[in-house]
Nucleic acid binder design. Structure first.
Length: 848
RNA sequence: GGGCGGGUAGCUCAGUUGGUGAGAGCGCUGCCCUUACAAGGCAGAGGUCAGAGGUUCAAGUCCUCUCCCGCCCACCA
């Protein structure tokens, strides 16, 4: 074994070893024949346009931990991987590629374009999958699914038709979010709002047959061309006598037509409605039903015409008259200029407000009316909430429930048609739209298993056990999978949902390309090893909160991997015949006692998805218990072969416990140390042994404390020498058993404490370091000891003890406490008081 | 406006159903190349647990209010 963990070659070798031995493949038969229990996870399918980023790292590491754990627990595990066709994103990529040849998709036509997308997919679509393999993840790659695979495609179309038959899908004219750049509608969840510094324009609309004006405020002045009325609050005294009067739109001396091509009256009316806020702006609101969500509702309420003044490419149409053909933002400038020249602008104020942007390209989204297909999500509200309320689906962390309920309470129907070419085409004559990508991914948990066919896979693995995903797609994806599964399978898609946070940078900012704060996972693997990165990441991932990424922790992970490597190396260099648990000494029992505790905790924590806790427990036990104390201690053993063999027993358990977190290094060391040709993946995950070594554990704990005291004194006085340092134990002040224990285990104390001799004494040794423990008084005889500073140390300690003493004393003399506190607590306090009292007594004696 | 998280050591965070000398890692300081590991070992310093009030024998932990920080949803034209 080399001196440091040489991960680069090992990772590739081990991954190939796993693949060659088909260790990731799920065997459906084992479940159907009741040989094994099933455990199934669906991988959230990455986009085919994607490259691995920190989010994938976190998401897949967690899944891999669960998968490897349950495999070792004896389950038949299916981790179903796949990729998503990512309609808009992929179409954008291929369009950009076309543009390099100066072509638009319209130039080559739909069929040819789709062909191009497939070509692109064959070439680049699996890059992310290959990158994910570097992470060591153990998905069943032989079952890789793609949302545009023939069978999956058919499943999507089938689902659409069934929902349509059930009356849950309908087509209608609604105000939708429109991205003029992607030239498609967007679901509400696909719109991200950003705050901008804009302007608020105050427009003057002349009142007919009077010299008056009504002033309205707007952030989108160009939409005035689609205005069909102005609304005021009925209680607004300023406008009371204007209600019902007519206004003329400035500059508009052309005929406008509504959506159905009927001419619209030139003059618009002032109407009254309670919804208008008297205190905002001027108290008068322009109503543009075709271009604003709220106005659309008002329009429906009052049966107002819908005047569309924009084309779907973002240019103004006939209704804009002289402004026809202008791009929407140029139009705004032109219109403001024209209005201003003609005295129709009262004022312009700076104004901060938010606008919706396309989550794919960042273009400002235009609210606009359009005919679209919708899915009645509201129909599912009750049942979707019920399955979570009744814990048929458990959401981790718990508070995720509240967010989920809140979303359902406010849910609106889902616009599922998209005006793009790449996707599942809506199955109707003359229909050119495709379905929202999320419509197809909503079927993921069962369509990947062959639905609507009644397959063995469905029988064996559905419903799945747990879904691991980020908070950001709770609504996009998780909610929709739940209702689709309830509708088609009459069953929840998964028993549990584990939601992890987003990875942010040290300052808590989102990772983004423009900020340049997102590290490349592959670079991290190069620098810190995959296992180091996985472990480092899990050490900083709190449950249910965003992760603040710190490269420092990747270093911690790498150092930890190296530590494990070197423990292995030590055992390898001292290797002995493996006959575990013979000739157990105190240190063996001490570590075995704790091993049991750790095994118990790790099993519990992984099952409860406490991945961060698990990582910390493993780290602490392995480094600070096993390496720092146990390995150091067994170096003093005369019967080394037994000691090493017992150490191997513990270390074998440690390797298995670590395997889900650090698959590569554990496999490599396991095969070297235990000369195995098969994989550690096939071993059983450790279960508690029920050792009964509590008393020995406590005895060793005493020795440990004694050694720490010795080290502290030596540290303070900078003593390095060993042989000339003697420990004197005062026989009157020390418990007989502890004295015996110390003498019996002199090999340990002398090596780890660095002393040369242990002797009994009945007096107090002058000018020495003082070790005052419970029922134990020792002196560390040192040359060149400055007893003055030792005295100061002791006085400081004495003061602290006295303070403590008086507070406990007070508590114990409080009748309420004695009456109401449980006897166990009172007893505990009494014992504590006694031991402090003894320590104080000893310290005082010495200081005299 | 509605909802959700968080405020504990210089930094990042643990802290079980309240049980009583508040923990870790990193960073910092000092000493050590002790034959597994300097990607290491040993030791040390460092905290009015955001603030106020309350419940309780007992509060970092439970309740109320306040102040900060972050996120999500809906957005006032």
């Amino acid at each position: 074994m080399e001196k440091t963990y040489n991960y680069k070659q090992i990772e590739e070798k081990i991954y190939n070893f796993w693949l060659e031995n088909e260790l990731f493949k799920a065997n459906t038969k084992n479940v159907l024949e009741n040989k094994k229990q099933a455990f199934c996870i669906m991988m959230p399918p990455p986009n085919i346009t994607g490259r691995i980023h920190m989010g994938h790292l976190l998401n897949n590491t967690i899944q891999d931990i669960l998968v490897r754990y349950y495999k070792m627990k004896g389950y038949e595990v299916l981790w179903q991987p796949g990729t998503d066709h990512a309609g808009i994103a992929t179409q954008n990529v291929v369009e950009r590629q076309l543009l390099r040849d100066g072509k638009k998709r319209q130039d080559i036509g739909r069929d040819e374009f789709i062909k191009k997308v497939w070509e692109w997919k064959e070439e680049y679509g699996n890059i992310i999958i290959n990158q994910l393999k570097r992470l060591g993840i153990s998905a069943d790659w032989s079952r890789l699914k793609f949302t545009m695979d023939k069978d999956y495609y058919d499943a999507v179309i089938y689902a659409f038709k069934e929902l349509y038959k059930a009356g849950l899908i309908y087509k209608g004219l609604y105000i939708i979010n429109w991205c003029p750049r992607c030239y498609t509608t967007l679901a509400n969840e696909e719109v991200e709002s950003i705050e901008i510094e804009g302007k608020l324009y105050y427009l003057k609309y002349p009142v007919i047959d009077s010299g008056e004006y009504v002033v309205v405020a707007t952030t989108r002045p160009e939409t005035y061309l689609g205005d069909v009325c102005v609304a005021v609050n009925p209680n607004d005294v300023r406008y009371k006598n204007l209600i019902g009067k007519k206004l003329r739109l400035p500059l508009v001396n052309w005929k406008r037509k509504d959506y159905y091509n009927n001419e619209v009256l030139e003059d618009i009316e002032i109407i009254a409605d309670e919804f208008v806020d008297i205190n905002f702006g001027t108290g008068a609101v322009k109503i543009t039903p075709a271009h604003d969500k709220d106005d659309f509702e008002i329009g429906k309420k009052y049966n107002l015409p819908m005047v569309l003044m924009m084309n779907y490419d973002g240019t103004l149409n006939e209704n804009a008259g002289i402004f026809k053909g202008l791009e929407r933002f140029n139009a705004r400038e032109e219109i403001v200029k024209k209005l201003s020249e003609n005295g129709y602008i009262e004022k312009i104020e700076n104004y901060k407000y938010s606008v919706g942007t396309c989550y794919r390209c960042g273009t400002i989204v235009e609210p606009i009316i359009s005919e679209q297909w919708f899915l009645k999500l509201s129909y599912f509200r009750d049942i979707a909430k019920r399955v979570v309320e009744e814990n048929k689906i458990e959401i981790i962390p718990e508070y995720g429930k509240k967010i989920y309920f809140n979303w359902w309470d406010n849910v609106r129907d889902w616009a599922i048609s998209r005006q793009i070419w790449w996707g599942h085409k809506i199955p109707f004559e003359n229909e050119n739209d495709v379905l929202d990508t999320w419509f197809s991914s909503a079927l993921w948990p069962f369509a990947t298993l062959g639905w609507p066919q009644q397959t063995d896979e469905l029988k064996a693995f559905f419903p799945t056990n747990i879904l691991v995903t980020g908070w950001d797609i709770l609504f996009f994806w998780v909610s929709r999978m739940i209702v689709m599964s309830l509708f088609f399978m009459k069953e929840v898609p998964f028993r549990r949902v584990y939601l992890h946070g987003l990875i942010r940078d040290e300052k808590g900012r989102k990772m983004s390309k423009s900020l340049g704060n997102s590290p490349e996972p592959l670079d991290l693997f190069e620098k810190y090893s995959v296992d180091g990165v996985r472990m480092g990441l899990m050490l900083i991932t709190p449950e249910g909160q965003d992760v603040k990424f710190s490269e420092k922790y990747m270093e911690v992970g790498r150092n930890y991997a190296n530590k494990i490597w070197n423990i292995g190396r030590f055992l390898y260099l001292n290797r002995a015949e493996y006959r575990p648990l013979e000739k157990l000494e105190i240190e063996d029992k001490w570590i075995l006692h704790q091993l049991d505790e750790v095994i118990y905790k790790i099993n519990k924590n992984i099952q409860e998805c406490e991945f961060n806790n698990t990582a910390k427990i493993l780290y602490d036990f392995t480094w600070h218990k096993f390496a720092d104390w146990y390995i150091e201690t067994i170096k003093t053993r005369y019967d080394k072969e037994y000691a090493i063999s017992n150490a191997l027993f513990v270390f074998e358990n440690i390797l298995k416990l670590h395997h889900p977190y650090m698959p590569f290094i554990t496999e490599e060391i396991y095969q070297i140390l235990f000369k195995k040709k098969s994989s550690i993946m096939l071993e059983n995950f450790p279960e508690i042994y029920n050792f009964e070594f509590k008393r020995d554990f406590e005895k060793f704990e005493f020795l440990k404390r004694l050694i720490e005291e010795i080290r502290e004194i030596k540290g303070i006085f900078k003593i390095q020498s060993r042989k000339d340092v003697k420990l004197y134990v005062n026989v009157q002040e020390s418990d007989e058993e502890l004295l015996k224990l110390s003498k019996e285990n002199f090999r340990i104390i002398s090596y780890l404490g660095g002393i040369g001799d242990i002797q009994e004494t009945s007096e107090k040794i002058k000018n020495s370091g003082v070790i005052a423990l419970d029922k134990f008084l020792g002196f560390l005889a040192l040359d060149n000891l400055n007893f003055q500073s030792e005295k100061e140390r002791l006085i400081k300690e004495l003061r602290e003890l006295e303070n403590l003493y008086s507070s406990i004393k007070q508590r114990l003399s409080d009748s309420d406490f004695l009456e109401k506190a449980p006897s166990k607590i009172i007893e505990n306090q009494r014992e504590k008081l006694l031991s402090i009292e003894e320590k104080i007594k000893r310290l005082k004696k010495i200081l005299q």
